[in-house]
């Protein structure tokens, strides 16, 4: 399902203008990342997708729905939103019950709900913890429970807010593979992240934000080539892009394969 922001501006009741006139179209099945320092307006922007914020000006569409006409609960059938802090949502005594909460609210029949829950636990590596109490798990596991809870809702759009913080390498790889499989299923993935390597390796499109505005919009290769944008958005280029700079290369590879490809062959 495609989503779009048309001239979206949002001003907090305190008068802070967090998002200013943003227009973006995210086509169905795209892996779309937003980067920028804390306070750039990233979270405020994506929270429009499930109606937590309604735009002060402009419109937000999720498929054929304008978000203004729908409640958060209604929009949850289309947009799954994984919040940063899992402890603000986990409540059940068993991981499996927590993951089943969303599908039940959406009115899925038992058979479908059970299949979705099992698949979500499998994907997040939590099958063995299905009967555990969420609060007995580590923070990185709890974050994966929160992710599973949203995957099980089988929404056409999935929003991930800082999915890799607090994850070890193993967890980051698992999330990367989930992003890939969501795309294979044709679902739209929108992520906010501070992890530029994760962003460069797993997303089709990157938007850099600062002061509530879009500074750059393009493929990771395009965006991470723009020094002025990276400086203004206060983000660091991915590790290998920085290494290419240190080596005075004129192209910035973003992945290990691309980097090695750019190395001279022996005997060349």
């Amino acid at each position: 399902m495609d989503v779009s922001f048309s001239g979206v501006g949002y001003t907090y009741p305190s008068g802070v203008e967090a998002v200013k006139g943003i227009t973006l179209d995210v086509p169905s099945g795209q892996r779309f990342a937003i980067v920028g320092q804390n306070g750039a307006g990233k979270t405020t922007l994506v929270r429009h997708l499930n109606g937590i914020f309604q735009p002060t000006v402009g419109t937000v569409h999720v498929g054929d729905w304008a978000t203004t006409g729908h409640t958060i609960a209604e929009l949850s059938a289309r947009v799954g939103y994984v919040f940063q802090n899992p402890d603000e949502q986990l409540f059940a005594r068993k991981v499996i019950d927590d993951v089943a909460f969303g599908p039940k609210n959406l009115g899925f029949d038992d058979e479908r709900a059970a299949a979705l829950v099992a698949a979500a636990l499998e994907q997040t590596g939590l099958s063995a913890e299905a009967e555990s109490h969420p609060h007995h798990l580590s923070l990185s596991e709890r974050k994966r429970v929160a992710l599973a809870a949203v995957l099980a809702m089988d929404t056409p759009v999935v929003v991930l807010d800082e999915p890799t913080t607090g994850q070890d390498e193993h967890g980051v790889r698992m999330i990367a593979s989930i992003v890939a499989s969501l795309q294979e299923q044709g679902r739209t993935v929108i992520a906010i992240t501070h992890d530029m390597d994760f962003c460069a390796e797993n997303f089709d499109r990157v938007v850099a934000m600062a002061h509530g505005e879009v500074l750059a919009d393009g493929t990771p290769t395009e965006v991470f080539a723009k020094d002025d944008v990276l400086t203004e958005a206060r983000v660091e280029a991915p590790q290998l892009a920085r290494l290419a700079d240190a080596l005075h290369w004129d192209r910035r590879p973003l992945t290990v394969d691309a980097f090695v490809e750019q190395l001279p062959r022996s005997g060349a």
């Binding site: 499930n50 937590i52 409640t71 958060i72 609960a73 949850s76 059938a77 947009v79 799954g80 939103y81 919040f83 402890d87 603000e88 949502q89 986990l90 409540f91 059940a92 909460f101 969303g102 609210n105 959406l106 809870a149 949203v150 809702m153």
Partner: peptide, 26 residues
Amino acid sequence: AQQARGLSLKGNPLRRIKIMLPLLSP
């Protein structure tokens, strides 16, 4: 967070009591 997981706040008083669990427990 719970509304984003489809929790609807509408309904009769009995249902409202039931939805307190996912709100109070965290």
